[in-house]
Design a protein around this nucleic acid. Sequence first.
DNA 1: TGCATAGTCATCGTATACGATTTCGTACTT
DNA 2: AAGTACGAAATCGTATACGATGACTATGCA
Lengths: 221, 221
Amino acid sequence: MTETVLVAGSKSEQAYHAVKARIVEGTYSPGYRLVLAAIAKDLRVSVVPVREAIRRLEAEGLVKFERNVGATVAGIDPTEYLYTMQTLSIVEGAATAMSAPLIDSLAIARARAVNEEMRECLQHFDPVRFTRLNQDFHSVLFEHCPNPHILDLVHRGWNRLASLRSSTFRFVPGRAHESVDEHEALLQLIESAAEADIIEKAARLHRSATLDAYLSQAKNL
Amino acid sequence: MTETVLVAGSKSEQAYHAVKARIVEGTYSPGYRLVLAAIAKDLRVSVVPVREAIRRLEAEGLVKFERNVGATVAGIDPTEYLYTMQTLSIVEGAATAMSAPLIDSLAIARARAVNEEMRECLQHFDPVRFTRLNQDFHSVLFEHCPNPHILDLVHRGWNRLASLRSSTFRFVPGRAHESVDEHEALLQLIESAAEADIIEKAARLHRSATLDAYLSQAKNL
DNA sequence: TGCATAGTCATCGTATACGATTTCGTACTT
DNA sequence: AAGTACGAAATCGTATACGATGACTATGCA
């Protein structure tokens, strides 16, 4: 398995994807200090493309940047988490609703299969695996969204959440069960070609509920 | 009046704001070819900070970038316009709804005053002025949104629309009158502390209606 | 002993230089 | 006359180099 991506195009691209990957997979955990020279040496490029990469990641909110000081991996303080989830609930809800009429029965079946895997996963609960399946499931639902801007916003939201090291469900394991049920309900709405409004609201609430669970959990700490 | 901004901080910042300003105010119109060296010479800096600025603008969608070819001011082909308006309808609707409970009566009065100006403006219709007032009006409504991510998305949407040279209402003057009425309706909803759902839907429809008007207009060309 | 200040080190910010790629124009061939 | 191929100019991409800024440490004074 080659470490460096082959199709990388420009060095800036390479650097961008490399750093992003390390953030998402947790090699660079929140608060990690991103030193340009060090990354450049590591990737065998000069600092210039690395700078560009960092700035792009900053624009996506994965990295916090301070002039003349440096870049750090954006922490997920609880406030940020709230903002991100709230934003995602809105854009993902919209994306799912817009996507729904375009989802064929094959894709529905695929999503349902993933959801069944999630249900099985409830037995020997593994939050990390569960979270990845969760993303897979939702991807099927919103990926057909015809508006690329909205789709992009959804992706950005998921990316930011991914930089939470492991998983939302580590904090709120109780949500996992409900989550699976709500997924099935969502699928049935889509199959029955429900109104866009209805689907949007369901998708939005599904996410808000996870956020609420997290918040009431956090309050007890 | 000094041409260069004083608080500009880094050269990258300077370049970013300078180029952005020129795009928004129309000095660089859509399709304009942004040549790094030329801009750098013009701003008395080297190309490196200009590159960074361009990349940031690319991330915001104001600039289209092609490897080894160059950057151009993002055109507003009708499709892009549609996507942007659709996205804006969603995030602005949400922002307005979240903002609504925090708007005090003073701000309401201010918004109403702006709307009255718009109504007067209907007599000797000036699309550019009308559009600016329109932005002022909506700013009052969504600016209190407590979620900075969502607010940022709204601003980005408006910025992209601003790079339309003059005005939406140049194309759909018929919408102007209805628009003013819908504004008043929105204000009354907010004053009466209507449910967030209701406000969100109203704000969203208000924008979609403009989009629909544009689309049916465009179909006739 | 504690705080202030100066000096050094790490790191970022920008300029300049050169190599790589694309595009456009011109000349040649069919 | 039209199309293709070659070459030159324009522009981008990256590396290296140096200046600027902020952080840390050590030393001296209160």
